[in-house]
């Protein structure tokens, strides 16, 4: 199986594309660093007992008064910047993956239904999609985030912090998936293999799930990859604006916002390093998504 994959045209095209290889490497390194943060990070920034204010605002190790214990310096509370980035990336990724997952489930279900049912169902669902697509996704996310927070009782807000932001970003991104899936579904539902299933009386629900779904998944997963990068940015934007995650659970966006306060007093490392990580990760994911889209699209070959 593995050998066959490595021998496939896809794997061949991958090996021949430096962009794909490098961005995959970056993504793998960042994701591994984030996932293994508890084991790899030099410090635990959330362990208040280990923090020492004496260590605060230390510059990175390569500057004159750097401390080898804190390779990328420390912030105002003496937390190791490298460690906060690793933990922060973990939170950013978690939010983005959950949000896109949620978005995919909603988008694919609605797209399948609209495409397969057609008629009035299709018209209504697609108008909703059109309306939502006229607003920038971040605006929708901000709005949903604000409304949900206002509706939630105060005591639940803290516990549901991540869920709220996942929901807000997820809701802002499903229409693209729905539209793509609907388009492919429209094509697939007219194919003879669907007719063959209908002739023997297979139910619509089964046809959608077991026949059509596997055939429409490809393009939407590619778009999902591209959207993963955007979702990370969404979360960072919300957190930067202060409506995302709190400083007690700092994501990359939160770190950048906090660090921003120190930028002009000379402690640039607090914001620049999380910023660079964010940029590298999103750029790599987008490049990879772009490459995937081209590689899997036979018309562009």
């Amino acid at each position: 199986m593995l050998r066959r994959f490595l021998d496939s045209d896809f794997a061949y095209a991958f090996r021949r594309s430096p962009v794909a290889v490098i961005s995959t490497l970056v993504v793998v390194v960042v994701v591994l660093a984030a996932l293994l943060a508890p084991y790899l990070a030099p410090h635990n920034p959330f362990d208040l007992a280990s923090l020492d204010l004496m260590d605060s605002l230390k510059p990175p190790v390569f500057s004159a008064d750097g401390d080898s214990a804190f390779p990328l310096g420390t912030d105002d509370q003496g937390r190791d910047v490298l460690s906060t980035i690793m933990y922060g990336t973990r939170i950013s990724l978690e939010v983005a993956v959950l949000a896109i997952g949620f978005s995919l489930v909603v988008g694919i279900s609605i797209g399948l239904l609209a495409g397969y049912a057609g008629g009035a169902v299709d018209a209504v669902l697609m108008r909703i999609v059109d309306v939502q697509l006229t607003f920038p996704a971040i605006l929708i996310a901000l709005l949903v985030d604000g409304v949900v927070r206002a509706l939630l009782p105060r005591e639940m807000q803290e516990a549901l912090e991540i869920d709220v932001i996942v929901f807000a970003i997820g809701i802002s991104r499903w229409p693209q998936f729905a539209r793509t899936v609907r388009g492919s579904t429209l094509i697939e539902r007219g194919r003879d293999y669907v007719m063959a299933a209908r002739v023997i009386g297979i139910s619509s629900a089964r046809i959608m799930i077991s026949h059509i779904l596997p055939n429409v998944l490809g393009p939407v997963l590619v778009i999902a990859t591209l959207n993963l990068g955007l979702a990370i940015l969404d979360e960072a934007t919300l957190s930067f604006l202060g409506v995302g995650l709190p400083p007690t659970e700092p994501s990359l966006g939160t770190l950048i916002r906090i660090g921003n306060n120190f930028l002009f007093s000379g402690e640039w490392w607090i914001t620049i390093f999380p910023g660079l990580t964010l940029a590298a990760m999103v750029l790599s994911i987008n490049l990879l998504g772009d490459w995937l889209r081209d590689a899997l699209n036979p018309r562009l070959r």
Binding site: R191, D192, Y193, M195, A196, V199, I200, G201, N215
Partner: peptide
Amino acid sequence: RAQPALRRKMNMIFQDPYASLNPR
């Protein structure tokens, strides 16, 4: 066609051998 016992007695063969089998 509402009766499975009768419905199974009819079936269809299609023109395009590439589109009539689910590729997955």
